[in-house]
C-alpha cells in the first residue's frame, strides 16, 4: 500500500522552540523498503510515530493508499510497529507476546484459540526462533528479542511495517546478520516497510530508497546510489560517507585550489568561493602535472585492505585512500590528483 505524508508540521511545546518537523512530505511506494536517515534530533522518529498514529502532527495529513489516515487512531491504522527497545511484554512468554495482537481483537473478529496459537508458532518459525515459545523475553538475546518484536508486529497482518532504530541496541556482528535477514524477510513478505536509522551503512545497504532528514526537513530522497553519488546538499554529502571539505574558488570555468586549477567540471556554478567535498577514494597520488596539487602528508594509517593518509592542502586536511603497497611517510610532500568531488555554493 502506498503511504503519503503531506506537509507534516510538528512542534513540541517543551524544547527549544525548534520545529521537530517543518513541513515534511514523503511518498512511499507500495512494497518498498525505505529508510529515514538522519542525525539525532532530525525528526525521523517523530515522522515515523506520526505515520503510525502514536503522535499527531500540528498540521498535515497522512494517507494510506487513498484513505486519509490522519483521522484514525493507532489501532485503526493497522500498522506493525517495532520499537527501538522492542517493548516486549516481559510478563508474557514469547508465544503470548506474539499472540497479543490477535488475543485483544473484539470477539467477532478474533480467531479461535487454537488458530491463534498456530499462527504464533508459524511466525516463530518465520523469524527462525522455533522452540522458544515458552521462554520469557528476559531469557533471550538482543537479536532474538528483535526478531520476536518483528514477529509480534507481523501477527496482526499489518498494512505497513514501521521500525524505529531496529538494530540500534545490538552489537556490530548481530547487526549485520539481522540486516541481511530483514532484507530477506521483506523480499519474502512484501510489506511496505519504513525504518528509522542514524546509521548510514544500514540505510544504504538495506533500503530501496533513503530519505535523509536534517533539522525537521527532508534534504533528499533517492536510491542509495543517488544519495551517495549525487548528494543534493552539502549536508547530505557530509552526512553520508566520509568526505573532507576544501575551500575553492570558481573562475574562468575552473575550480581553483589556491593557485592550482583542478580538473573538475564546474558547470552551473557562478564565479566566487565554493565548497568542494572529496571522499578518500576520490584522491590519488600521481605525477606532478596539470590538475595536480602538492600535499603534505600529516598522518598515515592502515585501514584493512588499504592505507589511509591525512593530507594537508593549504589550510584544509582531507583523507586519501591508497593501495597498501604505496609507501610514503609523515612529512613527505606528494603530488595528488582530485579525480572526483562535489561542489556546493559557499
Amino acid at each position: 500500500m502506498d503511504i503519503r505524508a503531506r506537509d507534516i508540521v510538528k512542534n513540541f511545546h517543551h524544547g527549544k522552540g525548534v520545529a521537530a518537523l517543518a513541513g515534511v512530505s514523503l511518498d512511499v511506494v507500495s512494497g518498498e523498503l525505505i529508510a529515514l536517515l538522519g542525525p539525532s534530533g532530525s525528526g525521523k522518529t517523530t515522522l515515523l510515530r506520526i505515520i503510525a498514529g502514536l503522535d499527531y502532527p500540528n498540521s498535515g495529513e497522512v494517507y494510506f493508499g487513498e484513505e486519509n489516515a490522519s483521522v484514525k487512531s493507532v489501532q485503526e491504522r493497522h500498522v506493525g510497529f517495532v520499537f527501538q527497545n522492542y517493548a516486549l511484554f516481559k510478563h508474557m512468554t514469547i508465544a503470548e507476546n506474539i499472540a497479543f495482537g490477535l488475543e485483544v481483537r473484539p470477539r467477532a473478529t478474533r480467531p479461535p484459540k487454537t488458530d491463534i496459537r498456530k499462527r504464533a508458532l508459524e511466525l516463530l518459525d518465520l523469524v527462525q526462533l522455533t522452540g522458544l515459545e515458552k521462554r520469557y523475553p528476559a531469557q533471550l538475546s538482543g537479536g532474538q528479542r528483535q526478531r520476536v518484536a518483528l514477529a509480534r508486529a507481523l501477527a496482526v497482518e499489518p498494512k505497513v511495517l514501521l521500525l524505529d532504530e531496529p538494530f540500534g541496541a545490538l552489537d556490530a556482528k548481530v547487526r549485520r546478520e539481522l540486516r541481511r535477514w530483514l532484507r530477506e524477510m521483506h523480499d519474502r513478505t512484501g510489506h511496505t516497510t519504513i525504518f528509522v536509522t542514524h546509521d548510514q551503512d544500514e540505510a544504504l545497504e538495506l533500503a530501496d530508497r533513503v530519505a535523509v532528514l536534517s533539522q525537521g526537513r527532508i534534504e533528499q530522497v533517492g536510491t542509495p546510489d543517488e544519495i551517495y553519488d549525487h548528494p543534493a546538499s552539502a549536508f547530505v554529502n557530509t552526512f553520508i560517507g566520509e568526505s573532507g571539505e576544501l575551500p575553492v574558488d570558481i573562475r574562468d570555468g575552473k575550480a581553483w585550489l589556491g593557485e592550482r586549477a583542478l580538473y573538475l567540471p564546474v558547470e552551473g556554478f557562478a564565479n566566487g568561493p565554493a565548497r568542494l567535498f572529496v571522499r578518500p577514494q576520490d584522491v590519488e597520488m600521481g605525477e606532478w602535472a596539470h590538475g595536480a596539487v602538492m600535499a603534505d602528508v600529516v598522518g598515515v594509517r592502515r585501514t584493512g585492505a588499504t592505507r589511509r593518509a591525512d593530507i594537508r592542502l593549504g589550510d584544509a586536511t582531507i583523507e586519501m585512500d591508497t593501495p597498501a603497497d604505496v609507501t610514503f611517510s609523515i612529512g613527505d610532500k606528494i603530488p595528488v590528483h582530485i579525480t572526483r568531488g562535489r561542489l556546493f555554493a559557499a
Partner: peptide
C-alpha cells in the same frame, strides 16, 4: 513504551 506497543497491536 509497553502501552504504546499494546495500542499499536490493536488493544
Amino acid at each position: 513504551l509497553d502501552e504504546e506497543a499494546a495500542l499499536s497491536l490493536g488493544a
